[in-house]
């Protein structure tokens, strides 16, 4: 090697090695990063379509309230008014799409109510809590409480 590079040949080789490494990284990145990444944010744009293509399970509150106006009325002003219908009744899009063919099952209060109202010291003091074993015999909660407006019947 002669001229300007005479004593810099090894440095030129090292620079070439770095350039190769950076190029290899960029090629690898180009191959690995999915198309559309970063188009709308720090995620793959196609993920939106993928999520949209997944089957729906929940109909949404508006779909329930369109038919069950009596329940809407009963819930007005109650402490359960802001709870979503399907939070207790489960996902019901099939029922919303075919109301007569698909009938939802009535939730078991001894399981459903207890999930929120069993005594637990981690819950805020003002939250209605009972020790279910002491509170009632094995009777259903709905024998005394209206689930949509939970006052004593």
């Amino acid at each position: 090697m002669s001229g300007w590079l005479k004593d810099k040949g090894h440095l030129a080789r090292m620079a070439g090695l770095f350039a190769f490494g950076i190029t290899a990284f960029l090629v690898f990145r180009w191959l690995m990063v999915p198309a559309g990444f970063g188009l709308y944010g720090h995620y793959r744009a196609g993920a939106l379509d993928d999520a949209g293509a997944r089957p729906l399970h929940y109909a949404g509150r508006a779909a329930c309230e369109g038919c069950h106006t009596d329940i809407v009325e009963a819930r007005q002003g109650s402490r359960h008014a802001r709870i979503g219908c399907e939070a207790c009744h489960g996902p019901l899009i099939k029922h919303a799409q075919a109301p007569t063919e698909v009938k939802p099952t009535r939730p078991d209060g001894r399981v459903l109510c207890v999930r929120c109202h069993e005594t637990n010291p981690w819950k805020p003091k003002g939250f209605p809590q009972v020790k279910v074993a002491d509170h009632s015999d094995s009777g259903p909660c709905t024998a005394c409480h209206k689930p949509h407006a939970p006052k004593i019947s």
Binding site: M1, K6, D7, G9, H10, R13, M14, L17
Partner: peptide, 9 residues
Amino acid sequence: LWSDNISPA
């Protein structure tokens, strides 16, 4: 890197 130049420079 197959460069054996260890000249003082």
